[in-house]
Simulated scan of single mutants.
Amino acid sequence: MMTDLGLSDVPAELAGPAAELFGDRLAGVRRYAALLADTGVAHGLIGPSEGGRIWQRHLLNCAVMAELIEPDARVLDIGSGAGLPGIPLALARPDLEIVLLEPMARRVEWLRSTVAELDLPITVARGRAEERTVQRDWAGADVVTARAVAPLARLAGWALPLTRIGGRMLALKGASAAEEVDRDRAAVRGFGGSAPRVVQCGSTLVDPPTTVVIVERTAAKVGSRAASAASRGRKR
């Protein structure tokens, strides 16, 4: 059992929302917050200045996405990094089957250690969403989540092939969400996605609310050159 790092207490103004979101799993969330503030910083998963904002910026901001996910869904969190949003979703919604996908070995090691420490039934897999082996092993998810992974068009090219027909990609975005939707709408459709839409989550629990772009997978194949072109670019 890890020692108390003194950084895991819920800020007083967030205690109510944290209790509502996590219920009797709040002790596990505190342990996760302490790990993020300690070894998460040491591993470069979050910045050293983030320690005082872990609950607001990372934990609650991610957990409110749970309102968009149906019961017992299989969730694939791509480019998971520090386990965001996958671990907060698992702590808020123990009914979910969650896989964390991360390409960097050092981060995978940290995620596996953290999942074991928290005693969560989460699978941690190493790989990139665009790799054939990943698509073979993990395609068919009900929901694919991503946070700060890539611009919308490129993200759709990675996430939608891993999503079942009728499933959804949930991309946690910031102020650029509406601009990305306008710019990348055609490319997203070319990957077999619906018209992307922007929603706000947790408006009564977090301020500002969490911005999420939702894309449903409606077709099986890429249908446009624009979509194919948009999928090219930098590796994560």
Score class of each variant (00 low, 15 high):
residue 4 D to G: 04
residue 6 G to P: 07
residue 9 D to V: 08
residue 9 D to L: 12
residue 18 A to E: 15
residue 19 A to S: 13
residue 20 E to M: 07
residue 21 L to P: 13
residue 21 L to N: 05
residue 22 F to N: 14
residue 24 D to T: 10
residue 25 R to H: 14
residue 26 L to E: 09
residue 30 R to L: 03
residue 31 R to C: 04
residue 33 A to W: 04
residue 33 A to T: 10
residue 33 A to V: 15
residue 34 A to G: 15
residue 35 L to Q: 13
residue 37 A to T: 09
residue 38 D to L: 05
residue 41 V to F: 14
residue 41 V to C: 11
residue 42 A to P: 11
residue 44 G to K: 12
residue 47 G to Q: 02
residue 52 G to C: 09
residue 53 R to K: 10
residue 53 R to T: 08
residue 59 L to H: 01
residue 59 L to K: 02
residue 60 L to H: 02
residue 61 N to C: 06
residue 63 A to S: 12
residue 64 V to F: 13
residue 70 E to P: 07
residue 73 A to L: 08
residue 79 G to L: 11
residue 80 S to D: 01
residue 83 G to P: 06
residue 85 P to K: 05
residue 86 G to E: 13
residue 88 P to C: 01
residue 93 R to F: 07
residue 95 D to Q: 11
residue 96 L to E: 07
residue 99 V to E: 13
residue 100 L to F: 13
residue 101 L to A: 08
residue 102 E to C: 01
residue 106 R to M: 07
residue 107 R to S: 01
residue 108 V to P: 14
residue 110 W to A: 03
residue 111 L to R: 04
residue 112 R to Y: 00
residue 113 S to R: 14
residue 115 V to G: 13
residue 118 L to S: 03
residue 121 P to G: 10
residue 121 P to L: 07
residue 122 I to G: 03
residue 122 I to L: 10
residue 124 V to E: 12
residue 124 V to W: 10
residue 125 A to S: 14
residue 126 R to T: 01
residue 127 G to Q: 08
residue 127 G to A: 10
residue 128 R to C: 00
residue 129 A to W: 09
residue 136 R to C: 06
residue 141 A to W: 05
residue 148 A to T: 13
residue 151 P to C: 03
residue 152 L to M: 12
residue 154 R to T: 00
residue 158 W to I: 02
residue 160 L to S: 08
residue 160 L to K: 08
residue 161 P to A: 07
residue 162 L to G: 08
residue 167 G to M: 00
residue 167 G to S: 04
residue 167 G to C: 01
residue 169 M to A: 05
residue 171 A to V: 01
residue 171 A to T: 03
residue 174 G to W: 06
residue 174 G to R: 05
residue 175 A to V: 12
residue 176 S to H: 00
residue 181 V to D: 13
residue 188 V to I: 13
residue 190 G to I: 04
residue 193 G to V: 03
residue 194 S to V: 05
residue 196 P to H: 08
residue 196 P to G: 11
residue 198 V to W: 01
residue 200 Q to A: 14
residue 202 G to T: 00
residue 206 V to M: 03
residue 207 D to S: 15
residue 208 P to T: 05
residue 216 E to R: 10
residue 216 E to N: 12
residue 219 A to N: 11
residue 220 A to Q: 14
residue 221 K to H: 15
residue 222 V to E: 14
residue 223 G to D: 15
residue 226 A to P: 00
residue 226 A to S: 04
residue 227 A to Q: 00
residue 227 A to C: 01
residue 227 A to V: 00
residue 228 S to I: 06
residue 229 A to Y: 04
residue 234 R to E: 00
residue 235 K to A: 00
